[in-house]
Computed example of a mutant assay.
Amino acid sequence: MECMEEDPSESERGIWKLSVDGSSCNSGSGAGLVLTSPDDWTLEYALRFKFKATNNEAEWEALIAGLTIAKHLEVQKIEASSDSQLVVGLANGEYEAREDPMVKYLSHFQGMKSAFEVLRILKVPRAENV
């Protein structure tokens, strides 16, 4: 029996991609998210909030909605990208949540992390976001 070394990209296989973007203005707030499977099957969602949200709150809502959908699809590995420095910094433990809404979003996010074998949150430039 021949023994083959594990392919270095083996851990990268099966990773879903989640792109999120939130927005807030005087007329309302909402978010968009795109969830893409490893074989390029894509789900796109547009969310309109019935509550007033800041841009960062809208980003959190999009991230949590995307992760909730991924969890229901039994996704094990996911890489999420956002253009919000604050949300990415909080999610990765680089920033400390100080305002009550951010503390609550971070706590909710941390409670969801155990549903995934791999969960990475990346900061992307606004121009490259969905």
Rank of each mutant, 00 (worst) to 15 (best):
V87R: 08
I78Y: 02
P101M: 06
K113A: 07
E61R: 11
W41K: 15
Q110D: 12
V87P: 03
A115M: 00
V130W: 08
I78S: 09
G66E: 11
I64N: 09
E2T: 12
E94Q: 15
A127D: 09
L33S: 06
N26V: 08
L47M: 10
R120T: 14
V103G: 00
R48N: 13
H108W: 07
F116P: 02
V75G: 08
E79N: 11
D83W: 09
A97N: 02
A58T: 01
R48I: 05
I69A: 06
I15Q: 06
A65M: 07
S81E: 15
W16V: 07
L106Q: 09
G89V: 06
L73N: 10
G30Y: 03
G93F: 04
D83Y: 09
Q85H: 08
A62S: 11
D7A: 13
V88Q: 05
A46R: 14
I78G: 08
S11L: 11
K71E: 11
S37D: 02
E2A: 15
K123T: 00
E57Q: 15
V130D: 03
K50I: 02
S23R: 03
I78N: 05
G14N: 11
R13K: 15
V103E: 01
S84A: 04
M112W: 06
Y45V: 14
I64T: 09
Q76A: 12
I121H: 03
E94K: 15
N26T: 12
D21Y: 13
E57Y: 01
A46P: 00
A65Y: 09
V75H: 04
G89K: 11
S114Q: 11
V34E: 10
D7P: 00
G32K: 08
V87I: 12
F49E: 03
K50T: 09
A46M: 04
I64G: 08
N55H: 14
F116Y: 05
E5H: 07
D21L: 10
A31G: 15
Y45K: 15
A58C: 04
H108E: 15
M102N: 06
Q76V: 00
S37I: 03
V75S: 05
A31F: 09
V75M: 04
E128T: 08
R13Y: 03
R126A: 04
S107V: 00
D7G: 02
W16R: 09
D100N: 10
S23Y: 01
S82P: 01
N55S: 15
A58L: 01
A91P: 07
N56S: 06
N129L: 07
L67N: 05
S19A: 14
V34T: 12
L86D: 04
L35P: 01
W41D: 13
R98S: 01
K104L: 12
F49P: 08
L122G: 00
G30N: 10
N55F: 12
A62Q: 06
Q85S: 07
E117P: 00
S11D: 12
K77V: 06
V75N: 05
A46Q: 10
A80Q: 03
E61T: 02
S24M: 04
Y95T: 00
E99F: 02
V87W: 10
A70W: 03
E74W: 11
G66R: 10
V130A: 03
I69R: 13
Y105C: 03
P38R: 05
A58I: 00
S37N: 05
F116V: 08
P125M: 01
W60D: 09
F116W: 08
V103K: 03
M1V: 14
G93K: 07
L63C: 06
D40A: 13
